[in-house]
């Protein structure tokens, strides 16, 4: 039987996160994503030069809403982002960190951009891996915070975010002057995602340095909507649409660990089985679904779930066809 092969004209943009000393940064290694000219893991159709990557979240303040089974993994460092980042890299071999400046949100601690900049500087010096740095999900405040952060990490080629309709102008300008890439987010809508990418590139920002976040729906909470928008984005990008050829990111941990399936203890819900295993699997399963939708970066929380997903990526990246 003849295999029906699709011949795509486009490919996903290749993006580098981090800069080594020869590029003007201080990172010990860099991360490369994207570059594929086929749908996820279809080696018989095209090339997938870079595997998807997993980033571990590090918060600048204790994540009080996290369930105990997640918190216990980070005992002693939940209030100390530097210790947290070091533990991630040294103990769990994490090669990409996502620093979440949650405390900057006006309703949390309203940390000033200057203070946030100092935290970023400390984390940057403590580890040698590339950094994704996001604000506290306040459109207005994130603009101010990232303006400062972009200066602090200038030359490090970070991935900053999250730019939304309300603040993309400030964040784009910051990323332009600091030489960083940026995450552009829209609410599960391919038309709006394309529109935001066009608006950002109209400011002179290279479309090749944008990463799309379609908003992440958790397993059981709308994952399938995100999944199909991501799939459509890939198909459009591979068909040659330059404004939908960007790598995609999913914030998996943030969605999973507020779901009742991850938060409810076995005492409350004995039929659901042990909470720790259940929650880890919930996070890992969600992540693997997004791998198949075309995700290039998965931002996750639990070290055990990250390990599982990284092993799965290794298995999926075994090119059976060319062997």
């Amino acid at each position: 039987m003849e295999k029906a092969r699709e011949k795509w004209v486009g490919k996903v943009n290749e993006l580098v996160i981090g800069a080594e000393p020869q590029e003007g940064g201080t990172r010990k290694k860099i991360i490369k994503i994207g570059g594929e000219n086929t749908l996820p893991f279809l080696y018989f159709e095209g090339k997938i030069p870079n595997p998807p990557v997993v980033a571990m979240e590090v918060w600048d303040t204790e994540p009080v809403a996290w369930p105990e089974v997640l918190k216990e993994e980070f005992k002693g460092c939940l209030k100390d982002p530097v210790a947290w980042a070091k533990k991630a890299v040294e103990e769990w071999n994490i090669d990409l960190l996502c620093l979440r400046l949650f405390s900057t949100h006006p309703d949390v601690q309203n940390t000033s951009p200057e203070e946030a900049g100092k935290i970023v500087e400390k984390v940057l010096h403590a580890v040698g891996v590339p950094l994704i740095i996001i604000g506290g999900y306040s459109a207005q405040k994130d603009g101010d915070v990232l303006f400062r952060v972009s200066e602090v990490v200038k030359g490090e080629n970070c991935l900053l975010g999250i730019a939304v309709q309300e603040n993309y102008k400030t964040i784009t300008a910051s990323c332009l002057s600091g030489g960083h890439s940026l995450i552009a987010e829209t609410p599960i809508d391919i038309n709006l995602a394309k529109q935001l990418n066009i608006l950002i590139s109209d400011m002179g920002f290279p479309a090749e340095r944008i990463v799309i976040h379609h908003s992440t729906g958790g397993l059981g909470y709308g994952l399938e909507y995100t999944y199909s928008v991501m799939e459509r984005t890939r198909l459009a990008g591979l068909s040659g649409d330059k404004m939908l050829s960007q790598p995609m990111i999913n914030f998996v941990g943030q969605e999973v660990w507020r779901a009742k399936e991850a938060k409810t203890s076995e005492e409350e819900m004995p039929v659901w089985g042990r909470q720790r295993e259940r929650a880890i699997l919930w996070e890992a399963t969600t992540a693997v679904a997004f791998l198949n939708a075309g995700a290039n970066i998965l931002v996750m929380n639990h070290p055990q779930a990250i390990k599982l997903v990284k092993e799965t990526i290794k298995e999926l990246m075994v090119d059976l066809v060319s062997k």
């Binding site: 391919i190 038309n191 709006l192 394309k194 529109q195 066009i198 109209d202 459009a236 068909s239 649409d241």
Partner: peptide, 11 residues
């Protein structure tokens, strides 16, 4: 349906 619609599709 050859390209994805967005408000700035003419650009």
């Amino acid at each position: 349906n050859k390209t994805v619609y967005c408000d700035s599709y003419l650009k």
